[in-house]
Structures are given as C-alpha cells and as structure tokens.
Nucleic acid binder design. Structure first.
Lengths: 122, 122
DNA sequence: CTAGGCCTTCACACCGGCGTCAAGGCAACG
DNA sequence: CGTTGCCTTGACGCCGGTGTGAAGGCCTAG
C-alpha cells in the first residue's frame, strides 16, 4: 500500500510516516517510481508507535518495541523493551509523585486564598 | 540592585530575567546608564515565578499571581489568581488521572512481558 | 593606555513531533 | 493536451524557556 493509504488507515498523516522513517522506525520498500510501498504488517507497527506515543514515550524509546514487534511478529516483548518499560514505569511513578505534590500545593494555595477572601486585593 | 546580582540571588540567569521582563512579569527601573535597577521586592517576585514555573505553570498563567503579589505585597491571592488556581488544579487532576491510567497500562505490559519470559525473542 | 568586569540590545540555537508550503514527477481521465 | 491526484524531496515554522555569542558602552584598577 502507498503512504497515503497507510496514513489514513493508521489515522495519521503522510508527513508523520515519513518522519518515522527518517527516525528509523519504519522501512518501506520503494516501487519503480520511488514510491514507498508498505505491507500490512507496517500498519501494526504504526499503531504500536501511536499508542506508545500517546502513553508518553518518545520515538527513541519506541524503537526497541518496534524492533521486537518486527522480529517476533507477535505481541511478545523483548528484553530491550522490558528495560524501557521499567525505566518508563519508574519515570511515570516519579512524575506521579511530583504531580501529586503539585496538586497538594495547589490545593493548599487555593484553600488559603479562600480563607483570606475577606481581604480581597484592591 | 543590578540584574547580575538579582540573577545570582534568585538562582537564575540575567538572560532569564530579561525574558521575564519582555513577557511583562518584571519591571525594573533604569539608571542613568540604562542599567536595570531592581529593588528587593523583585526578588520575591522572581522567587514566586520560579516556584510556579517549577509547579508546571506557564509564564502567562503566572502573570496574575505576580500582579497580585505586586498589589498586596503579601501572600494574599487575588480573584484572578484563584481562577487560574482552580483551572490549574482541574488540569493537574486530569493529568493525574491520565498518568495513572498510563501507569496501569505500563504495569500491565510489563507483567505480561515477564509472563512470556519463557519465550524471549531471538 | 589597557585589561577586566559589569551592563546593554539583537538575534540565532535548542528540544520533539509534526504542519505546511514549494517545486517537481508520473499516471489516469476527460 | 490540460487537469486532477497521487507521490517525491527539501526546508522553514511552531511552542516555551533559556543558552550563547556578537558588538558595543561605561567604570575602575593597575
């Protein structure tokens, strides 16, 4: 299939697919006219990329997942992917802790602000 | 005090302070040589900016806080700030929910990956 | 006189994941 | 033969908060 079709089927843009290729995530063949030719397996790859992106991974982090998907063809996860998963999980946990703290601070500020409501500025 | 001194006392750079000024957050006087002159109150303002930035606010969101701090001189929070606080709190809550979901997905992927460990790729 | 240290403005570089435009090629259809 | 519609490469724009460097002015100390 051509890039336009894949883009539509994957719910993204041709530009995006070219970018993924530039980043080494997708490797289409070329036909006689130099057009990119993708087979159906690439659709799964792109879906994988999109969902991982949505989860907060960067394209670099996604590479091992794609390599694994390409190697096994199934949903199995390779050691590299596991390492990235662990790292990302820890990262997300840290982020959660941080964000929870932020939330507490905001809540504190807000309640304090409402306490001092009898003293509005100006 | 001059910009260099304020930068050092606030733990940031002169470039950053000029940027804050450009964004309308800080308004130093100018001396005979065109040098920026800051008084001590600006140090509090810059600290406020830095901590709010660290909490995830953008400079635009921070403006009402600074305006309020400048108006009251104390820790009181103005209506505009309250509105921003509410909005940001909701935003952070949404972000937390999203991130929690992400964490669950990651955890799920990871445990599944470890289950299939007897079938490592390659 | 020179060197150094503060300041000034202007303006480009960076990160990531694209959007968007330009200029062109090849195919099919009228 | 022209139009439409797909494709190609290349390259700039964006966002936000800074780093960094150039080119210059002013003051002070040696």
């Amino acid at each position: 299939m051509l890039i336009g079709e894949l883009a539509e089927r994957a719910g993204t843009s041709a530009r995006t697919l070219r970018y993924y290729e530039e980043q080494g995530l997708v490797r289409p063949r070329r036909d006689a006219h130099g057009y990119r030719q993708y087979d159906d397996a690439e659709l799964k790859v792109v879906h994988e990329i999109r969902s991982l992106l949505a989860v907060g991974f960067g394209l670099d982090d996604i590479k091992p997942f794609v390599a694994c998907l390409r190697a096994t063809g199934s949903g199995h996860v390779c050691p590299d992917s596991v390492a990235v998963l662990r790292r990302k999980l820890a990262e997300v946990d840290g982020y959660l802790a941080e964000l929870t703290d932020v939330r507490r601070q905001l809540h504190h500020q807000l309640t304090q602000a409402l306490e001092h409501r009898e003293n509005p500025c100006l």
